[in-house]
């Protein structure tokens, strides 16, 4: 009776997730094996592998995959490099400052993704803040290509997803016994050695979580590459949405989405294997 009453608590959430996450994803899987439609229909009768075949046949689509994955990896790396000193700083800051720094780190989350990306277009555009400032200073003649290319997209994505890297790092650093660092010092280790041999390895669970989160978010992001990349940086995710919404090719779009998801999954698995921690 007690178990039954308790299970009523989880029932709505379980139903919601099963009906509107599990079943729809199964639908995508099924859709990817359907035959392409004709005469403006999103899909045709019967099943086939045409969706997958189309992806591998056309270099335009096939090449977008490694490029997207690389974009995700670079973004993740940039985030890690930018986030680590910040996480260390906040973990070591006094209480009074911590709230403010925390607020700054979370600020990108509190503004919508459209506005954030839009902010970057104002900054990076040909007549944007950076270019016009540099031109006024006489440092450049023609505007630097900051936007509508991989550089701009990586920069904007790193900004958008930086909080997702800082937060896991911070929680790993904060759950670390401060006496561990002192112990290393008492044994004769200098600050950089402590970082290399103790702090960083102990924060590895945070590094892992942060990297996986940022990588997955980055390769599946849509708005930022669309606005900052100006449709000139073709990520697989952009092509998926294009195929589904504009071209109305549902089996092909689904197949492409699944290929992207599986590739990302493989990379995450390899990463997890490489950074496996026996001690945890």
């Amino acid at each position: 009776m007690r178990r039954f009453r308790a299970s009523l608590l989880i029932l709505p959430a379980a139903a919601l997730i099963f009906l509107f996450i599990v079943l729809p994803y199964v639908t995508v899987l099924v859709m990817s094996f359907r035959a392409p439609g004709a005469n403006g229909e999103p899909y045709g009768p019967g099943f086939g592998l045409q969706g997958y075949a189309q992806f591998f046949d056309e270099g335009y689509y096939l090449w977008s995959l490694p490029q997207s994955l690389l974009l995700g990896i670079v973004t993740t790396f940039v985030c890690l490099v930018l986030a680590y000193p910040i996480a260390l700083h906040i973990a070591g800051a006094r209480r009074r400052w911590r709230g403010l720094l925390y607020g700054i780190v979370l600020s990108p989350l509190l503004i919508g993704i459209v506005i954030r990306s839009y902010g970057w277009t104002i900054l990076l555009g040909n007549s944007g803040v950076i270019n016009s400032t540099l031109r006024d200073l006489g440092l450049i003649q023609r505007p630097l290509p900051l936007m509508y290319n991989d550089f701009g997209v990586v920069l904007a994505l790193s900004h958008v997803f930086l909080p997702f890297m800082v937060l896991p790092l911070l929680s790993a650093l904060q759950s670390m016994d401060p006496a561990v660092k002192q112990a290393a010092r008492s044994l004769g280790a200098r600050p950089f050695t402590i970082f290399r041999r103790v702090t960083f390895p102990v924060s590895m669970p945070g590094v892992q979580t942060g990297c996986i989160l940022v990588f997955v978010l980055a390769i599946s992001s849509y708005v930022t590459p669309a606005l900052v990349g100006g449709m000139r940086v073709k990520t697989t995710t952009l092509l998926v949405v294009d195929a589904l919404i504009d071209q109305f090719q549902w089996p092909f779009g689904s197949a492409m989405a699944l290929i992207l998801a599986v590739s990302a999954g493989v990379i995450v698995l390899i990463f997890a294997r490489l950074t496996a921690m026996k001690w945890n």
Binding site: I21, L23, P24, V28, I219, S220, V240, V241, A257, A261
Partner: peptide
């Protein structure tokens, strides 16, 4: 990925 969830919901 949010965009994938959105697509899945659309099909469903």
């Amino acid at each position: 990925p949010e965009i994938l969830t959105a697509i899945a919901l659309l099909f469903f």
